[in-house]
Every structure is written in structure tokens, then in C-alpha cells.
Amino acid sequence: MKKYLNKQLFFETLYKLSIIFASLLLLLIIIFIFFEGVPALKEYGVFKMLFNMSWQPTAHEPSFGLSKMILATIISTLLSLLIAIPIGLLSSVCLVRLVSRKIKNIIMFIVEILAGIPSVIVGFFVLKTIVAFLYQHFYMNIGVSGNSMLAAVFVLALMALPTIITITVKALEAVNPMYTEASLGLGANKIQTIYKVELKAAKSGIMAAIVLGAGRVIGETMAVMLVSGNAINISSNLLLPTRTLTANIATEMSYASGLHQSALYASGIVLFIMIMLINITLLIILNKGGGDNA
């Protein structure tokens, strides 16, 4: 019996240690990213880093302005969501309400495949199709490749779709059937019921889907790097190349050292803060909307 109790105590301690370790990992990551990034923030100045337009890390008088890349990240995220949200919401509605269970399962499987395809492959695909197409039709004459903001937006929309669809489908399925029946009973037709009643009832779930989609898009690295052209540039012409925060880190880390490397960690801090803002927004949405679907 004593042996048994010892074993029990051992495992209970093990469970407790595991969860403590798992929840401290985030803190450990924050500490090390800041530890590496703070020197550049201190030496170059937080304000200058956020708002200076010039990024010349290897110049004689180096400058570490991130604003163009921050803008590129924000713009590419917003534009890709502009594509992914309507397609995602409409197809979720279609899956939950308009098609048979069998077709829904098949399409959900396709969505899962899309979610599972490594981002390098998505980038490769867009590079060889969309970018090649852009090159042939718009760029050949001016002699640059088709790598551009537009291609990046397309890649990011593809990456956001599975996240948006899976969560919206769940939210729509959780809508209280009484709402639906009441709406149909009052004489609304199926489409009116879906768009005027059910989508409103699933509001918080849909918001969560969009926010999570945005999180996935902001952090996307490899696919964007392959198609965006990687030139630090921000322009209203979407056919020109651009570089996001993530791509900047991944491109320059391999040869950076000293303050330059610290500046890359500082861009990691900026990225991290953006993601944490998203997580907190999500938490607020879910806490506020928790009772909606009950």
C-alpha cells in the first residue's frame, strides 16, 4: 500500500511539474527574445526603430528603421483577410446549411489538407503559377520578376482560409436550433434565416475565426518570403515587391551579427507584441461572447 501511495504521489508531482513547465515556456521565449532584442532598442531608440523609414543594417552608419516592414506586414494581412473572409464565411455557410452531410465531410477533408500543406509548398506553388503569370503579363517589358505584394497577399489568403473556415463552421453548428426554427416559423426563408439570424448568433465565433486567421497570416514566413520579392519597399502599386517583418528576420538572420542581429530580435519583439495583442483580443471576444450560442 505504501509503495502504491508513493507511486501515486510521484505521478501527481509529475503532472504538476509538467503543467508548470509547459506554462512557463511562453515566459522563457519572451525573456530570451527581449534579452537579445533590447540592446538594439536601447542603442538605436525605440521610437526611431518603429518610425524611421530606413533599414540599412550593414551601412557604415547603420539604421534600423522597421516602419516599412511593419506597414508591409499590416497591409498584406488586411488585404489577404479582405479576400479570405468573404470566401471563408460564404463557404462555411454553404458547408453547414446548403450541402449534404456527405459533401460537407469531403470538402472539410479538403480544407484540412489545405491546412496541413507546409507553407514552403504553398509558396512554391504560387511562385510557379501566379508569380510566373504576373511576370509574363505585366513585368516582361520592364525586366523585373513577378515577386510582389499581390503574390504575397494571395499566398496569405490561402493560409488564412482553413483557420477561418474550421472555426466558423464550428460556430455555425453551435447556433441554438431554436433561433433557426423561430425564424423559419416567422416566415423567413432559409437564406434570410442564415444571413440575418444564424450569422448574428454565431458572431463571437466568427470574430474569433477572423482574429485567429489574422494571427496565422501575420506570423507566416516561408511562403511570403518565396513570393514577395523581399525588397524593402512599400507602395500603392501592389505589383511591386515588398518585405514583411517575418521575411526580414528569416532573410538576414543567417549573416547578421552584433547590433544588426539584435535589431532582428527587436523586430521579433514587434511581431510578438502584435501577436499578443491578437491573443488578448481573442480572449476578450471569447469571454464576452461566451453566452451567445448557449
Binding site: 509547459a22 515556456l25 511562453l26 521565449i29 537579445e36 528576420i249 521579433g268 510578438f272 501577436i275
Partner: peptide, 27 residues
Amino acid sequence: MMRFSIDSLNGVPSIIFGLFALSFFIY
């Protein structure tokens, strides 16, 4: 708080994991 921490870990972009790995494991 533990849940928030683990959920947030799920949303951390992979490039941040890469930065962390280089700093913590290698350096």
C-alpha cells in the same frame, strides 16, 4: 493564466520559435 499561456504558445509564429531556439539553445 496557465491556459492563456498555453493557448498563446499555440499562436506564436514559427519564426519567433526560430529566434528563441537560436538564442536559447545555441547561444
